[in-house]
């Protein structure tokens, strides 16, 4: 009875968010009664809140010697996810959905792992299942939109982003993504509108400056693109995406020296950047440095960039 009392005291502490005391009570109840499996589960729960995922896992494993519930499998999935054991986590989430088919969060995290491993079709399927269970979470819409964006289904992505917006997501990240998709569908008016809204929400969100620049690129307004990307670089001077894209804008303007400087900087920051090698090769070619261009193109090729036939011919010894 004493262990039960201890356990119940722990639950009371947990209800009041006094995690340390709750954990103490659960450990005491387990000291008295090591077979009180619920105390293991609640200890795991406490450890999860405290971000001590190893101890969380240990307690869940103890609990699961005698019990298997959707919650505990899901929680084990979360711990494994946090610890970077993605395959195990994915299996846990999946098992949680088998035990409890209404566990939208388990579907959601399946989708997250699918996305991170590049399996966008499965990610879309899992986010959709989560949405079928709970259609009011903007995060599900947002993340499914990101998947559509990745596979180039920009119209579908726009639909999901708009839905997320209507459910209360007002972040710059969402507006920036929306702007990007509008840009890809050549809907410049809406792209510009969303870029401006994103910048209005958070002027330090550097990704928006890039999208803004890309809209200008689409409109072939390279001068404007340079200005926008330079604004972004004021916030994050060593951002290789902004530097690379500004280099492209300079290149299109025929300002090859400035383009070269930007690509040089990208390669100083990331000596393994295939795109920057390729772009610098193009720039050197325009500066009639054929040897330098070929050297850069070969570097790009060795990093997975496919070279056009004429480049290969041009660089033949």
């Amino acid at each position: 009875m004493l262990s039960f009392n201890m356990y119940n005291t722990g639950v009371s502490y947990l209800k009041n968010n006094n995690i340390d005391s709750a954990l103490y009570c659960f450990s005491k109840s387990l000291a008295i009664n090591p077979e009180l499996s619920k105390a293991y589960y609640n200890s795991a729960y406490c450890y999860y809140i405290l971000r001590d995922y190893d101890n969380c896992l240990r307690n869940i494993d103890m609990f699961m010697k005698n019990n298997i519930t959707a919650d505990c499998v899901y929680l084990r999935g979360r711990c494994n996810h946090h610890l970077g054991n993605l395959e195990t986590a994915l299996a846990d989430y999946y098992n949680a959905t088998i035990i409890d088919g209404n566990m939208d969060m388990a579907y959601y995290y399946c989708g997250v792992i699918n996305f991170e491993s590049g399996d966008y079709a499965k990610a879309i399927s899992n986010f959709s299942k989560a949405l079928n269970i709970n259609g009011k979470k903007y995060v599900y819409y947002y993340n499914r939109g990101c998947c559509y964006k990745r596979i180039g289904e920009y119209e579908l992505a726009i639909n999901d982003f708009i839905k997320a917006l209507s459910l209360g997501d007002n972040s710059s990240q969402l507006k920036n993504n929306l702007a990007f998709c509008y840009m890809k569908t050549r809907n410049v008016r809406n792209a510009v509108k969303n870029v401006n809204e994103a910048l209005g929400t958070d002027s330090a969100f550097v990704e928006t400056y890039n999208t803004n620049g890309l809209v200008s690129y689409l409109m072939r307004n390279m001068k404007q693109m340079v200005i926008q990307l330079t604004d972004g670089l004021a916030h994050r001077p060593n951002d290789i995406v902004l530097l690379n894209n500004r280099g492209v804008a300079y290149f299109e303007l025929g300002n090859y020296e400035s383009a070269l400087a930007d690509f040089d900087k990208v390669l100083r920051l990331n000596p393994d950047d295939a795109e920057a090698y390729f772009n610098r090769g193009n720039t050197k070619m325009m500066l009639r440095d054929v040897y330098g261009a070929c050297s850069d193109w070969h570097q790009a090729q060795s990093r997975g960039i496919e070279l056009q036939e004429w480049i290969i011919e041009e660089c033949e010894p």
Partner: peptide, 22 residues
């Protein structure tokens, strides 16, 4: 010319959101 883009980061849920589920 190769334009670069940022890799999207998915929105993540806080641990609190997690624990609303269990």
């Amino acid at each position: 010319m190769l334009i670069k883009n940022y890799d999207d980061a998915l929105f993540d849920l806080s641990d609190e959101d997690d624990l609303k589920t269990v």
